[in-house]
């Protein structure tokens, strides 16, 4: 009786692993799938092109602008202390709108409400630079996104979307990034889809880009209609992915092929 029970239990676990989330111990950053030379690019600040955006962001942090003629630094002071650990908690719940916002949206709402300046377009050099500069202050810290209980329904919705098959290829995110992350797609590692390094420098983009840009590219790849930048669906996906990566180390600005 006992051996039969053990086999049945083993079969049950085996089938559960195939269809379910990646166990905590098996989680791997996209970094660990890269070749040594790409890792070296990320590891050294003077070789990491993402640092060019961080430098720009540092200059923007101190630039006074808008009707209130304030710089980020006038309220937040030295980012090295005031922004430490902030990016590791985003997307976060925004009381004003009652919804989660990602770091780019948070920076832009600060810009329109407090600096009284025009918000920066998504993927603009300035918004990426400020986001990279703020994210950099959390480098090496564990991701904490999703601790706020108000976020629970949004994480659940992001998770559903992650599992939802869509597009002409009829694929869900999970079909690749949960079930086949140890395999390759057209010679490239599939990876587990943990957004540990955003905004990051993709060699393919020859530029820094946001997590929303990466998600939109993936959605286009399965031949579905990508959500617009800033769409609630994208923010919920970002939120789900960041809470799924909770405890993993922040790498921004990362480098990926």
């Amino acid at each position: 009786m006992r051996p039969f029970g053990a086999i049945a239990a083993a079969l049950l676990t085996a089938s559960a692993v195939c269809a379910a989330e990646i166990p905590q111990a098996d989680r791997r950053s996209g970094y660990s799938f890269m070749k040594a030379d790409t890792k070296a690019m990320q590891d050294e600040d003077t070789a990491n092109p993402g640092m060019l955006w961080v430098l720009d962001g540092e200059a923007l942090w101190r630039r006074k602008l808008g009707a209130s003629n304030k710089a980020c630094a006038d309220c937040h002071g030295d980012a090295r202390t005031s922004m430490k650990g902030i990016a590791a908690r985003y997307p976060a719940f925004d009381k004003a709108t009652g919804r989660p916002v990602d770091l780019e949206q948070r920076i832009n709402s600060c810009r329109s409400n407090h600096q009284q300046a025009t918000p920066m377009p998504f993927e603009s050099r300035e918004l990426l630079a400020l986001t990279a500069f703020v994210s950099r202050q959390s480098q090496g810290m564990p991701i904490e996104t999703g601790a706020d209980p108000q976020l629970a329904p949004f994480i659940a919705r992001g998770g559903e979307r992650y599992m939802q098959r869509q597009g002409q290829l009829n694929l869900a995110c999970a079909n690749c990034h949960d079930d086949n992350w140890d395999k390759k797609l057209a010679g490239s590692a599939i990876t587990q889809g943990h957004p540990t390094g955003y905004p990051l420098y993709r060699l393919e983009w020859q530029s820094l880009g946001s997590l929303q840009r990466r998600l939109r590219a993936c959605i286009t790849g399965i031949r579905a209609q990508a959500y617009d930048y800033g769409a609630p669906e994208l923010v919920e996906l970002e939120l789900y992915l960041m809470s799924r990566a909770r405890g993993m180390a922040m790498e921004a600005p990362g480098v990926r092929p």
Binding site: E44, T46, A47, L52, L55, D56, A59, R125, A129
Partner: peptide
């Protein structure tokens, strides 16, 4: 916003 990173 051009900038250089140098390692010497």
């Amino acid at each position: 916003m051009a900038s250089a990173l140098i390692n010497v």
